[in-house]
Design a protein around this nucleic acid. Structure first.
Lengths: 119, 119
DNA sequence: TTAATAATTGAAAGTTTGTTCAAGTGTTAG
DNA sequence: CTAACACTTGAACAAACTTTCAATTATTAA
């Protein structure tokens, strides 16, 4: 953060255009945080597993072949980011994907990758 | 990865349903990687700045108020992940968003966050 | 060729992240 | 109440990430 204010090659017009139309920093940082939560392989696998219906922590551990503790830690992040929702049924807590919007976002990312893989 | 194979509360049906319909691990990991690249505030700001047109590294450094080196490092990640494209014009390299699909994915994430912020 | 500019790169430092292990809730059945 | 079960949580450690600083490449102009 030093050679920033020296005027070098800067294209004034372009910079101002970008400056004036830029998305609010708060929104961008929230978006980054949201994307950060689904950008982990384990968490994406959890989300993928939940697409066909609710699963408890043990189920998820079995599907992903990981420890219950590890899954639970990740579920907390997913819960906090409201990507996932839990409902208690006695001792068991069943998790589902929080809402349709999230599912669409995921589908879009997966489709994009499938396309690329098939290139 | 120890208490995985002990049968505890596992709901067989649900687990098998999730197992059989799960998305290919390769695709999921690529998607995680792709999302990982846009899930950083700096990189998301770069992408956002590029939405109105091409900018060079210096321009981006000016817009984000960061060092040229830091921006360049991030641009390399964005380039490698094919989220961004560069065209050389003499000494200057102008960057743009790689394709429309990526732009849509971004819009979707940003809209989602704007909605949430306005709740 | 030499000097200057735009950008990239490698290494180092500081921070963040993911998993494990052990201990802690909260709920139900006996 | 007590025991067992489903799950969560905190601390710790290793792996990965982001930025800085210094050196390097590529292009153009003198």
């Amino acid at each position: 953060m030093k050679d920033v204010c020296e005027v070098r090659c800067i294209h004034e017009e372009n910079v101002q255009r970008a400056q004036s139309a830029r998305t609010d920093d708060g929104v961008l940082e929230e978006a980054a945080a949201l994307l950060g939560v689904i950008s982990d392989p384990t968490r994406l696998k959890i989300m993928d597993a939940l697409r066909l219906g609710e699963l408890c922590v043990c189920d998820l551990a079995a599907v992903l072949k990981m420890s219950i503790s590890a899954i639970s830690h990740q579920l907390r992040l997913l819960r906090t980011a409201r990507l996932v929702r839990g409902r208690r049924a006695g001792k068991v807590i069943f998790y589902t994907i929080h809402d349709e919007h999230i599912e669409k976002l995921m589908d879009m990312a997966l489709d994009h990758c499938r396309q690329r893989c098939g290139e």
